[in-house]
């Protein structure tokens, strides 16, 4: 799947993560991450974001994430909102079937 427009979700507040999604210059997915806990949890945060991209089968997107110590649930939710917005889908989400494993 391709995104329709660039999007953003989340803030730069403490315990939040800001996710910006846009079209990449090539066909691959690239994730850039800034985080105060990059050394400890960088890989984990990237995999949470990557899993969400996989869930929507996105290709050719550039994600820049600025983490301020967000919990897993926040990271997933912010990434999913950004994806929904990028697919211009945010108002037609069926929240009852959104499941997080």
């Amino acid at each position: 799947m391709k995104i329709i427009k660039p999007s953003i979700a989340g803030t730069l507040d403490s315990c939040d993560i800001q996710i910006r999604i846009e079209e990449s210059v090539d066909q691959t997915n690239t994730i850039y991450l800034k985080s105060p806990v990059e050394k400890q949890f960088g890989e984990h945060i990237r995999s949470l974001i990557q899993n969400m991209l996989d869930k929507y089968a996105l290709e050719g997107v550039l994600v820049h994430a600025v983490d301020k110590g967000a919990l897993d649930c926040t990271i997933k939710a912010r990434t999913e909102s950004a994806i929904m917005r990028a697919m211009a889908n945010e108002n037609s989400v069926d929240w009852s079937v959104i499941a997080h494993g």
């Binding site: 953003i8 803030t11 730069l12 507040d13 403490s14 800001q18 301020k68």
Partner: peptide
């Protein structure tokens, strides 16, 4: 206190 971050995210939006 991360005030810079709070100010900037509003402006960025």
């Amino acid at each position: 206190t991360n005030a810079l971050g709070r100010m900037l995210s509003d402006i960025m939006y």
